[in-house]
């Protein structure tokens, strides 16, 4: 069962990711990104990371993609077909294929025999406790990052009088 779901979602992610980097339309690109992110969210659910999955939906899909679409509209990016690729496409293809080849061979060799068991239920409760006890330092740091990003985004995007 899990393997079937994984297979379908993986196919979706692969298709959407490839289309994202080849499409000639910016808005389509944002929608393909949305598909990849939604696929990842399903994978998180499958791997018993419920909370991460819903954060992915809320923050990534809800905020990030909407922000990107806003960005595209505010910059009045030409919607429709246009040349979006640079001259280095063949080189890029070679580099990324090489990285994929090396990385996938090595992870295949390393984790060949290991399988995941869908056993232990993970509750938000335990995750929350972990974040607010052991990982409280990174949590506090992230809060300052968000504050700085907020102030920074406002000061940059604001129109000067």
């Amino acid at each position: 069962m899990q393997q079937v779901v994984f297979g379908i979602v993986a196919a979706l992610i692969v298709f959407a990711a490839v289309r994202l980097v080849t499409t000639r339309n910016l808005v389509h690109g944002a929608l393909y990104l949305l598909a990849v992110l939604a696929g990842a969210a399903i994978l998180f659910l499958l791997f018993l990371a419920e909370f991460v999955a819903w954060v992915q939906v809320l923050v990534y899909i809800g905020a990030v993609v909407v922000l990107l679409l806003f960005g595209l509209m505010l910059t009045r990016a030409p919607i429709g077909n246009m040349a979006l690729d640079s001259q280095t496409r063949p080189l890029a293809a070679v580099v990324s294929l090489a990285i994929f080849g090396i990385t996938s061979t090595i992870v295949w060799k390393t984790f060949k025999g290991q399988t995941v068991h869908f056993s232990k239920p993970n509750t938000v409760d335990t995750l929350g406790r972990a974040i607010f006890s052991q990982y409280v330092l990174p949590f506090e740091i992230v809060s300052v990052v968000l504050l700085a990003a907020l102030v920074g985004a406002v000061v940059l995007a604001r129109k000067e009088e």
């Binding site: 740091i141 300052v144 990052v145 700085a148 990003a149 102030v151 920074g152 985004a153 000061v155 940059l156």
Partner: peptide, 11 residues
């Protein structure tokens, strides 16, 4: 922490 160093620096 690295992100806290960099994000304000972009701005």
């Amino acid at each position: 922490s690295l992100e806290l160093v960099s994000v304000p620096a972009f701005v």
